[in-house]
Design a protein around this nucleic acid. Structure first.
Lengths: 129, 129
DNA sequence: CACAAAGTACGAAAGTTTTCGTTGACATTA
DNA sequence: TAATGTCAACGAAAACTTTCGTACTTTGTG
């Protein structure tokens, strides 16, 4: 298995994780329904992916019911942290500053967001003092 | 070819791009030397990757010399922007705020960085007003 | 019980990425 | 000019991802 596959979900896997995070623990069918809403997918493809993710410990499976219930192993925020630090290392030479700058320049932060980010900075700075 | 392969370099490709950005236009051997410094690589693997990247228009090739000279098509910052927005869409539901928060919590910003980020915020806010 | 519906398991195929050996062209120098 | 070293080109193989068809199992219902 490649480089810590545990913290580097593929695109398809991440789509499924997004559903699980939003919805909470879900059956294959539930995930399938959610995904179908935005793009054409095949039920067994979703199933297969969830099975593979299970092997990789990306999700946990509860087999007590006939329709197994899947749940993300990591909370969304933790996975996000992994993904960000990974990107930081691979493309930003570890410079969080640069990454933040690029994130802001991508024009997706509202005024409210900016205010919150400022609050975060205050807090972070206090903590790091 | 998959989803805009142009703006989604693979890991191996990104490593090479990092060398090209730092070093400037370089021959295969130069890239190879740089990469060798940190991990074992095979010359022809680097060559092959550069050839593929050439086809994908991830790099430009100057063939005037026998040792072809390769150069990244996109400046580093632009590629970084693409990568961040991509991650934003795939894992953060487009919320730059969340991404910034995770980036900061990954403990890689110095006090100086934080100050610069504040400056950035000011500037960005002025622009977005 | 028999049948249909819904579920899991499995495997094959196609596409992508990564690796590396081999070949042939070109250059340098003894 | 012959030997040696450097280079690009090519192709094949391995690993991984993604997709989807098929088979088998379980459950519910007439």
């Amino acid at each position: 298995m490649a480089k810590s596959t545990q913290f580097r979900p593929t695109d398809g896997e991440l789509e499924i994780l997004n559903v699980l995070w939003q919805h909470g623990p879900a059956t294959v069918r539930e995930v399938y329904e959610k995904l179908s809403a935005t793009k054409p997918v095949v039920y067994t493809t979703v199933l297969k992916l969830l099975q593979i993710m299970s092997e990789k410990d990306l999700v946990r499976r509860d087999e007590r019911q006939r329709a197994h219930v899947y749940e993300a192993c990591l909370p969304q925020s933790e996975m996000q942290r992994h993904l960000v630090t990974d990107l930081l290392d691979r493309a930003f030479e570890g410079s969080a500053k640069e990454l933040v700058m690029q994130a802001l320049s991508s024009q997706k932060a509202s005024r409210g967001d900016l205010a919150e980010i400022r609050r975060m900075l205050d807090e972070y700075e206090r903590g790091a003092k």
